[in-house]
């Protein structure tokens, strides 16, 4: 959808993964849910935590911390699931992203946003849309579509041969 390019607002939802603050364009966020039991889907990569029921629909939940190379998200009273709409190869897909804590909706002037740094972050730069700043703290604005780009997903299912799986 081109909508998010045109209607790009300056509003961002910020949330914490471990001690770092991340942000998502508000247009991508559908809702924020409290943590709920996740049904694990066997034989899938660790960052894919499983599926939950969102208003009668089955929605996959991903652990961004694992995806970004951090330790898995522990379950605390603050743990949330951010339901986002992402664009995968032209198709809109809904998924949930685990967050240690959801903070606030923040206005960021485009002028305040700097391009992704080449060094100094654990993240691959193509996942980063830009860097914002609030009270001297950096905010990493994610390009969530890129995070789950087709190539990344394809490796998820990785053609594990059935017979081999059984033998091992």
């Amino acid at each position: 959808m081109s909508a998010d390019n045109q209607n790009e607002t300056n509003q961002y939802l910020t949330f914490k993964l471990d001690r770092e603050i991340f942000a998502l364009g508000i247009a991508k966020v559908r809702e924020v849910l409290d943590y709920t039991a996740i049904t694990r889907v066997p034989k899938t990569p660790d960052f894919m935590r499983g599926v939950i029921n969102v208003r009668g629909g089955v929605v996959p939940v991903v652990d961004l911390r694992v995806k970004f190379g951090m330790a898995p998200t522990p379950q605390t009273v603050n743990t949330c699931i951010i339901i986002v709409e992402i664009n995968l190869e032209g198709e809109t897909t809904v998924l949930g992203a685990l967050a240690d804590q959801v903070e606030e909706v923040l206005d960021l002037d485009p002028a305040q946003i700097e391009p992704a740094p080449r060094i100094g972050t654990r993240l691959r730069t193509e996942f980063i849309k830009g860097m914002g700043k609030r009270d001297e703290q950096f905010i990493i604005i994610l390009d969530i579509d890129r995070v789950f780009s087709g190539e990344e997903l394809a490796s998820v299912a990785g053609g594990e041969d059935l017979a081999q799986a059984v033998r091992s």
Partner: peptide, 10 residues
């Protein structure tokens, strides 16, 4: 299960 899990075996 949606796109993300489309090739899950079994």
């Amino acid at each position: 299960l949606g796109r993300m899990y489309r090739d899950v075996q079994g």
